[in-house]
Each structure stands twice: as structure tokens, then as C-alpha cells.
């Protein structure tokens, strides 16, 4: 069931997910389109998430935005519910009560283990988005494993002292007993500055011709978990199951690439280790069970289902 409407206020609105925003030029959404989007959300009972560019909006826009309950996704150093860091440096000066998002390539990520370890105790929640996850190699996987092990050490100490920072890559799976995917096109859709609707910002960024009619999405069932043959058997519950990445890498919205599955399972297995490590010292999330498995890509064991 649709629950959220994401509204990109400008072509240069900050990207907070896998896909880069190629638009550099400022181009605000039309005021009429903005009003129409808000009206649509009100009628459909959708919570709005506004996504901001890195400049101050005209007052008339702020007035319209203020007519409805909403969340703000903003670039650093603006204030919002979700703040996207420009880089690792800016993470340290983030507001403490916001969700921090760090978009980062794998090479930089692997080189930044200690920096992230230092930041973790200072945040409430950090979402790390690996922007080139579709290029993961076996060697990357080893480095990723090492990074997650290092972050596990920090998280374990924090949790045992009663401070529970959230890191999407590790603690989400530790807390989940059922899938928590992005669900673009099923639970949320996006209104772009051109006044058209998309499954999510990435579909707009990568091809503006990919717009949809939100009232009649063809083959919408393929976006649902029950129509994803691999994912519906999978217990990497924290995985975003990004339908844009799926389509980019396998040409089908319901099929993830090998690289995505392997990365998500590496995180899952690290979350399992974190959970076990915490439980050695304290009672913690007794309802969660993460089983030991012998694969990283569910595709490899598909015949066992």
C-alpha cells in the first residue's frame, strides 16, 4: 500500500541513495506541480518527504511546503530530518538528532574504517550508501568484511554501555524480524521537478522518460516482494532491494545482481556476529534469530527452495 510521496523540489535536489544526480543546473519544480503533488498526497493519505537542493528556496515555495506535515531530506549543512553529508569530513559536524546519510564509493569506504569507527559513537543513526556496489569484486568483499568487523567492535562496545547508535549496514538486520526494503513503487513514489511521477528519484535521474501514472502502474506486482523469486526467500531483511539497481544490473526490477546479494549477505552475516557478540555479555533482542548460512548469494541455492 502506498504510504509516502517523495517530492524532488529541484533538479539539483540532493541524492540520498545509490544513483548519482547528474543534474547540476537549478530548476525548481513548478509551484502548480508542487501544489498538485501535495493535494495528491493529501487525498491518497501519503506522508511527504521533500528533497531539497543546496540553496535556499523562495519564500513562496516554503509557504506551500508548510501547508502539510512532512519530512525534509536536505544536503549538509542545512537542517532537516535526514541530512546528506557531502563527505566523511562533514559527518563530524552533523546535527545529532538527524539521520545522517553518507554516500561513498567502495574504495573510499574501505580506506575510511577508522574515521567511521570514530564517528559512530557520536551519531544516532548513520546510513552508509555505497554508490558503486554493483562493481563489487571478490577482493572488495574481503575488504568489506574487514571493515564491518572493525565497525562491529565499536558497535558492540557502544551497545554494552547502553548507547545504541544505528548503522544501517549492521544494526538494521540485528533489529529486524521481517523484511524492510525500500519498496519504491509499492509503498512510495516520487514526484519530479518536471511534474511527472517515478518509482523513485533514481528512475528520474537516470531516464526522465521512465515516468509512470501512479494510479495505473503497469506490472506493479513485479515490484512487490512476493513477485521477486530470489528475494522472497531471503532473510537479509535490511537489504534495500533497490529496484533501480536491479533493473540497471539485471534488466528486471525484481531480480538483484550477484554483487548486491553478496554485499547484503556479508552485512547480514556481520550483523549475526555482532548480535552474538553482544549476547555474550547481555540479553539483547531475544526475538531475533539470524541463522548461520553457507552462501552469500541466494541464487546459488535456489534449487533447494
Amino acid at each position: 500500500m502506498m504510504q509516502y510521496l517523495v517530492i524532488l523540489l529541484d533538479d539539483s535536489s540532493v541524492s540520498y541513495c545509490h544513483c548519482d544526480n547528474p543534474h547540476k543546473e537549478h530548476h525548481l519544480i513548478g509551484l502548480d506541480d508542487l501544489r498538485a503533488g501535495i493535494l495528491y498526497a493529501m487525498k491518497q493519505n501519503l506522508m511527504i518527504q521533500f528533497v531539497y537542493p543546496d540553496y535556499e528556496l523562495p519564500q513562496e515555495y516554503l509557504d506551500v511546503i508548510d501547508t502539510i506535515d512532512h519530512h525534509d531530506i536536505v544536503p549538509h549543512p542545512m537542517k532537516g530530518d535526514v541530512v546528506v553529508a557531502k563527505d566523511l569530513e562533514t559527518l563530524t559536524s552533523m546535527q545529532a538528532d538527524a539521520v545522517a546519510v553518507l554516500r561513498i564509493g567502495k574504495a573510499e569506504l574501505f580506506a575510511s574504517g577508522e574515521a567511521i569507527a570514530a564517528i559512530l559513537p557520536k551519531v544516532q543513526r548513520l546510513n552508509i550508501v555505497i554508490t558503486d556496489i554493483d562493481t563489487f569484486t571478490d577482493d572488495d568483499l574481503k575488504q568489506y568484511n574487514s571493515l564491518l568487523s572493525r565497525l562491529n567492535e565499536v558497535l558492540k562496545e557502544e551497545y554494552l554501555t547502553g548507547h545504541t547508535p544505528q548503522l544501517n549496514l549492521l544494526t538494521d538486520r540485528m533489529m529486524l524480524t521481517k523484511p524492510n526494503h525500500c519498496n519504491a513503487g509499492v509503498e512510495n513514489i516520487t514526484l519530479a521537478p518536471n511534474g511527472r511521477y517515478y518509482f523513485c528519484p533514481a528512475f528520474y535521474y537516470s531516464n526522465p522518460d521512465d515516468s509512470i501514472d501512479p494510479q495505473a502502474i503497469p506490472n506493479q506486482q513485479l515490484l512487490r516482494l512476493d513477485h521477486a523469486p530470489l528475494c522472497r526467500h531471503c532473510d537479509a531483511y535490511h537489504c534495500r532491494r533497490c529496484v533501480w539497481l536491479n533493473r540497471k544490473t539485471t534488466l528486471e526490477v525484481n531480480t538483484p545482481s550477484h554483487e548486491q546479494c553478496v554485499a547484503a549477505h556479508t552485512e547480514r552475516n556481520a550483523a549475526r556476529q555482532l548480535l552474538e557478540a553482544i549476547r555474550q555479555k547481555a540479553t539483547f533482542m531475544p526475538e531475533v534469530e539470524i541463522k548461520e548460512i553457507n552462501y552469500l548469494d541466494p541464487f546459488d541455492v535456489r534449487k533447494e527452495w
Partner: peptide
């Protein structure tokens, strides 16, 4: 490109 084969090899009747 093995990723492009994945949808074919996981395709089932129900889906």
C-alpha cells in the same frame, strides 16, 4: 554477463 541471466534462471510459473 551472468547478472543478465539471473532473471531467466529464477523465473518460475507463479511469478
Amino acid at each position: 554477463n551472468e547478472n543478465l541471466l539471473r532473471p531467466f534462471l529464477t523465473l518460475d510459473r507463479i511469478t
